[in-house]
Amino acid sequence: MKKRYSSFKFSAIIAGLLAMLLVLSGCSLEWELDHSANFDRRSTIDSDRLRVIFLDVGQGASQLLISPSGKTMLIDAGNNDQEQAMLDYLKQYGVNRLDIVIGTHPDADHIGGLDRVIDHIDVGEIYMPKIQANTKTFESLLLSIKNKGLKVKTAKAGLVLDWDDEIKVTMVGPVNVSDSKNNMSAVVKVVYGNTSYLLTGDAERESEKDMMESGVDLQADVLMIGHHGSKSSSTLSFLKKVAPQFGVIQVGDNNYGHPTSTVLERLSKQGIEVYRNDLHGTVEIASDGHTYRITTER
């Protein structure tokens, strides 16, 4: 498979201007967009970097994180029909243990593949928010957790996860208890040096408002666009608070209209460079703590 070459001159010009502005303003953050010729999941080119990989699981979501020291974290695992694909991905990336697993919320398109992953991969800790679903998918996940002898830790705002000494991983949501599964989504902020990521699950405007009102630092260079680009998420005030340079939409063929034109236009007006699984396949944004290398499957 091949990486997508960056051929959009306008985007490159904008990126260059933004970089100049950052230098002039005294900000030390830099990034490079390197779309090389061969998309190699096992590549060691980024072995000194934090790798945040937005796996292409169709109309669902899954993020695989691999630290420079080899620590691993999996957030969600796509829908039920992605179970084998998830195992294949983990094998391709050389992952035989997951130090942390997070199921952001009980929707099938996020936790559908987690039961099979837990059945076949060594798992350290697992986090899920305190909300349930009366579905076979959720019950199957709980059974796999039980059979593995794991104890679920509650995902909620304020937690600092013990993952890698050089990387700070905190949960910034959910802040409050809600009847909405989406607004109970675990929201994870990852900081490595001067670089940062905000991974939002299906958090909607209610959760976004709660996070903003909590006073937590939400600024992040890379934002996983909430709820697959639905208009229920990514409010203008939230985007301004996060102020990302890059956005990733985890989306596939669907009948929901995701991502919506409203959100895409909003992202464009904020100058956010957007990557999408349905257009670019798997997207990896790797950081050495100062710069980013972005690679795409197509």
Rank of each mutant, 00 (worst) to 15 (best):
M1W: 12
K3G: 12
F8H: 05
G16E: 15
G16C: 11
L18K: 15
A19S: 13
M20A: 09
L22S: 15
S25A: 14
C27S: 10
L33Y: 13
H35I: 06
F39P: 02
D40S: 13
R41Y: 09
R41N: 01
S43W: 04
S43M: 05
I45G: 02
D46E: 10
D46Y: 15
D48N: 14
R49Y: 14
L50I: 01
I53W: 04
G60T: 14
P68K: 00
G70Y: 13
I75G: 00
I75Q: 07
G78R: 04
N79H: 11
Q82S: 15
Q82E: 15
E83S: 14
Q84T: 11
Q84K: 15
A85H: 07
L87S: 07
D88R: 15
D88P: 00
G94N: 13
G94E: 14
V95P: 00
R97Q: 15
D99L: 12
I102S: 01
I102L: 04
I102T: 00
G103E: 04
A108D: 12
H110E: 07
G112N: 07
I118F: 00
I118G: 00
H120I: 06
P129W: 08
Q132N: 11
Q132G: 01
N134W: 01
N134D: 13
T135E: 05
T135Q: 04
E139G: 12
S140C: 06
K148S: 04
L150V: 03
K151T: 07
K151E: 15
V152L: 07
A155D: 06
G158K: 01
L159D: 06
V160Q: 12
L161G: 01
L161D: 02
D162L: 12
D164P: 03
E166C: 08
T170Y: 13
V172L: 15
V172H: 03
G173V: 14
P174E: 12
N176D: 09
V177P: 03
S178W: 09
S178F: 09
D179L: 04
V187Y: 11
V187Q: 10
K189H: 08
V191N: 12
Y192H: 12
T195R: 09
T195A: 05
S196R: 02
Y197L: 11
L198A: 05
G201W: 09
E204A: 09
D210Y: 11
M212C: 09
E213D: 14
S214P: 02
S214W: 08
G215K: 02
L218H: 05
A220V: 02
D221F: 14
V222Y: 08
G229S: 02
K231S: 11
K231P: 02
S233C: 10
L236F: 11
S237Q: 11
F238V: 09
L239I: 15
K240G: 08
Q245D: 07
I249S: 01
I249G: 05
Q250F: 11
D253L: 10
N254T: 06
N255T: 13
G257L: 13
H258D: 12
P259H: 03
T260L: 06
T262K: 07
V263N: 12
L264F: 03
E265C: 03
R266W: 12
R276F: 06
N277P: 03
H280N: 08
G281K: 07
V283Q: 03
D288W: 06
H290A: 10
T291S: 10
T296H: 02
